[in-house]
């Protein structure tokens, strides 16, 4: 009955913990496998694809899926399969950049509001309320239209409309830990307020943030694709899922379904992956899940 029994259980290492999380939950394993497929497409896409995604060939226009062209060809004779794979890089880049930006800004603003409270909290909260009061997609359209029709501006627009979600989450997580024992202990150890906030309290908000990040990535892809679909942001002939669906939509009535369906599936696959990924990511960044 000694409190010093040091034998069991042994502490897991970080890698062993990741393996445990993946093994204990098959859905997480599936999500990570799907994510790996997306990553391979994004990184190695241009090397892997059988055709140049931009090379048109009028002789082969609007071919249905075949052994040579798995997803068929579009109205300019470009290989749809190659275009879908190559587009992964751009779509992922836009969503990752947008989410990273809103994560960063949202975390800083939310932490400040949650830790210091008072008038700062009030002002920031009203600001977030204002942003959330707009229909977010319309706000994003407005931002892109006002700033100019470029890929960077899609990123900024997507980031701005996502900031309130992160800020609110961080604010709540920081607020409940503001007066916790470990924050006080950190002050006794000579940490200034900023250090206590940044190094002690904020990291504890990461597990729920990871769920938000992953859901948000899927949502950001849809948002970017949506903006391209209505003609904002990415411009033809760049391969991008949203534009491809938009262009393909014109041909569905005439029976060439493969133009819109396959990029649509790619979009669905990506969003589905990110939605599944959240819980696994949270378990990995939460040390309390270790034993």
């Amino acid at each position: 009955m000694s409190d010093l029994a040091a034998s069991t259980p042994k502490t897991d290492g970080a890698l062993a913990h990741v393996v445990y999380v993946l093994r204990s939950n098959p859905v997480t394993l599936l999500a990570f496998s799907m994510f790996a497929v997306l990553l391979v497409a994004a990184i190695l896409g241009p090397v892997l694809v059988p055709y140049d995604p931009l090379a048109s060939n009028a002789a082969l226009a609007l071919q249905p899926p075949s052994f040579d062209h798995w997803f068929g060809t579009d109205n300019l004779g470009r290989d749809v399969f190659s275009r879908v794979i190559v587009a992964a890089r751009l779509d992922l880049a836009i969503s990752v950049a947008a989410v990273a930006l809103s994560f960063l800004i949202g975390s800083v603003l939310g932490s400040i509001a949650g830790y210091w409270g008072g008038w700062l909290d009030a002002v920031l909260n009203r600001l977030f309320d204002t942003i959330m009061a707009f229909p977010l997609f319309v706000l994003a359209m407005g931002i892109v239209a006002a700033l100019g029709n470029t890929v960077e501006n899609i990123v900024y627009a997507t980031a701005v409309i996502n900031i309130p979600f992160y800020a609110r989450l961080v604010r709540a997580e920081v607020n409940i830990r503001r007066d916790s024992g470990f924050a006080q202990a950190a002050k006794l150890a000579g940490n200034s307020d900023v250090r206590v906030l940044a190094l002690h309290i904020f990291p504890n908000a990461l597990p729920p943030m990871m769920v938000q990040v992953s859901l948000n990535l899927g949502w950001a892809i849809l948002n970017a694709a949506g903006l391209s679909f209505i003609g904002l942001g990415v411009r033809p002939p760049t391969a991008e899922w949203g534009i491809m669906v938009a262009e393909g939509a014109n041909f569905i009535v005439s029976g060439e379904w493969w133009l819109a369906i396959f990029p649509g599936f790619a979009l669905m696959f990506a969003v589905f992956t990110f939605n599944l990924l959240g819980d696994g990511l949270r378990d990995i960044v939460d040390p309390r899940q270790r034993s």
């Binding site: 024992g181 470990f182 202990a185 990291p203």
Partner: peptide, 15 residues
Amino acid sequence: IQMVFQDATDSFNPR
């Protein structure tokens, strides 16, 4: 001047 806290669980950073 230092202090030993009441709630040992709450007074350690879980991370």
